[in-house]
Amino acid sequence: MTDTPLLKVSGVSKFYGSRIGCKDVSFELWPGEVLAIVGESGSGKTTLLNCLSTRLMPTTGSVEYRMRDGNFRDLYHMSEAERRFLMRTDWGFVHQNPADGLRMTVSAGANVGERLMAVGDRHYGKIRETASDWLTRVEIGTDRIDDQPRAFSGGMRQRLQIARNLVTGPRLVFMDEPTGGLDVSVQARLLDLVRGLVNDLGLSAIVVTHDLAVARLLSHRMMVMKDGHVIEHGLTDRVLDDPREPYTQLLVSSILQV
């Protein structure tokens, strides 16, 4: 890890009319770090994630990102063209529902290759080679390269979505409940895969989840949210093993034990 953060978030709030989406969130994310945002449904996790990833405009606050040239840029003072370019090159966004993040009517290979073509790759053979390489890395057989995601299982779709996001070598990946809707054994494989990829590529990631096990496995640090506020923030193992806030204690103790 270097000594400058990748993302600086200060005082981000989002109001939906008089209701609070998230309020006064500040933190820094460092290169290679995985941050988990946990909390119950409606606690503002996804609102916060959308604000950070510029999919939603926060009411107040600023989000600064360190570009590849080392300069910090305020995301909300960038032009839309720059922001969209950033989103499809230096960032990734993994949706909970793969259908939101994939093009369901084009083949797996084209799904992975889309970002490459968007940044100007014009050699079919090379695009295809990169695509099949990435399919292998996310454990999808290369014989499925010409199949549409519609023909894939839920777990495969999610893995394809991850491949599609990582193909341009992003530095920051946002994940919204990446294992939601998958059965437990598939979840375990996916988590294992994501953990491996994050380690290998030195990615930074912000993972939104309501599943504390996901946070435990993937993240270095975590933030606990309730009613739009960050109520506890610390190293994952510390928060899970020694929760301070009553709500966090309740959350940790309500994990089902088999």
């Binding site: 969209r84 084009v106 083949s107 290979g109 084209a110 290759g113 889309e114 970002r115 073509m117 968007a118």
Partner: peptide, 14 residues
């Protein structure tokens, strides 16, 4: 942003 147009051509070749 015309990457999508090439996605169509990619699909054709595939």
């Amino acid at each position: 942003e015309y990457g999508l147009m090439h996605v169509k051509l990619y699909e054709d070749i595939a």
